[in-house]
Computed example of a mutant assay.
Amino acid sequence: MSSLSQILRQKLAATPSGRLPFAQVMELALYHPDHGYYGAGPRKLGRQGDFFTSVSVGPLFGRLLAMQALQEWQTLGEPEDFTLIEQGAHDGQLAEDVLSEIGDRPIRYLIVEPNPRYRAAQAQRLGDRVRWVESLAELKTGPGHGFFLCNELPDAFPVHLVRWNGERWEELHVEADGTEDLRFIPGDLSCEELEAEVQHLPRDLESGHVLEVNLAMLAWIRDLAQAAFRGLIFIADYGLDAEEFYADTRASGTIRRYHQHQMDGHVLENLGGCDLTTHINFTRLIDEAARHGLAQREYGLQGRVLGRMAMSWIQSLEGNPPDAGTMRQFQSLTHPALMGRSFRCLVLRK
């Protein structure tokens, strides 16, 4: 039995019911400081890791984001305190790619990172070109102007799992089954916030339909709205519109585990050794953002959004094609058979 399994079983045994909401299990599996999939430090990405990201494709993704940030800096009048703010910076590769394009322009870079192991890895790569804060709460007093970016962040927030039983939404909890295995068991909703959120969910689904409720994502966008900066927010992630998210074809939910580029739904197995991720409900995210003053500027498939962002770069080539490696990166990021359709991008005006 792994160390994380022992910790989880101790927590289960300490509860009166012997159960925990899946959100607490997922948080342990991903973020336990010693045994969580992400908690112990940056993971390898790309071919040698468990999955590819837009960053692992190459530096073009960061270059395009830098160009967008520079346009915003100019739109705001090139303020002295303009800051690029990244959350979920992993090993700092995206920051390095962005900063390479920014060059010597007087623009600051700030990373939101609570984990000291990640900060150490980022500092080793980036040196004194960036500074850090531990939470979004520290941005309430400044900077006053900025460009916030994150890539594949809210899909890894812990989620509650709920199931429609034909009459009401019930929560799926996790318990031990007497062996070394874990299993889901239905029960009452575990908190008032979840009770309020399920009021947004449809009630005309087939019995047994499972959905993820990402309360952490909603709290995150509210915290982001309270930050002091004016500017743009760029979010790229796996996600769906509400109609797709609730579709009968996804009646088992979107929660999946990833390991060595293989994906399956066995999310209670090998906890801590695999990534756990869900598609985010972009419709719900956009609605919550609007409630807190964040206006939608652009939303769509990554291929379309990055294609639009790349126009100034393409024009700068003056008819000369990019080198083969850069062209492969562009195709990987934007082609609908690759990342162009798998990911979506949301740009909010703050």
Rank of each mutant, 00 (worst) to 15 (best):
M1Y: 09
S5C: 07
K11I: 01
L12Y: 09
A14K: 13
P21A: 08
Q24K: 14
M26L: 12
M26I: 09
E27I: 07
E27R: 14
L30E: 14
Y31S: 08
P33D: 05
L45W: 05
Q48N: 12
S56T: 09
G62F: 13
L65F: 04
W73I: 06
T75C: 07
L76Y: 02
G77I: 12
G77K: 10
E78S: 11
T83N: 08
L84I: 12
H90A: 08
V98A: 00
S100F: 02
E101G: 00
G103I: 00
R105G: 00
R105Q: 02
L110H: 09
I111P: 00
V112M: 02
P116H: 02
L126V: 03
L136C: 04
A137D: 07
K140A: 08
T141H: 09
F148T: 04
L153N: 00
R168W: 04
L172G: 06
G178P: 04
E180G: 14
C191D: 10
L194W: 13
V198Q: 13
Q199T: 01
E206R: 15
E212F: 04
M217A: 15
A219K: 09
A227H: 05
A228R: 15
L232Q: 13
E244A: 04
S252I: 10
G253L: 12
Y258P: 05
Q260L: 13
H266C: 15
T283I: 10
R284I: 05
A289L: 11
A290R: 15
E298P: 07
L301V: 09
A310N: 03
S316I: 01
D323N: 10
R328F: 03
Q331S: 10
S332R: 15
S332G: 03
H335S: 11
A337W: 13
L346F: 13
V347H: 11
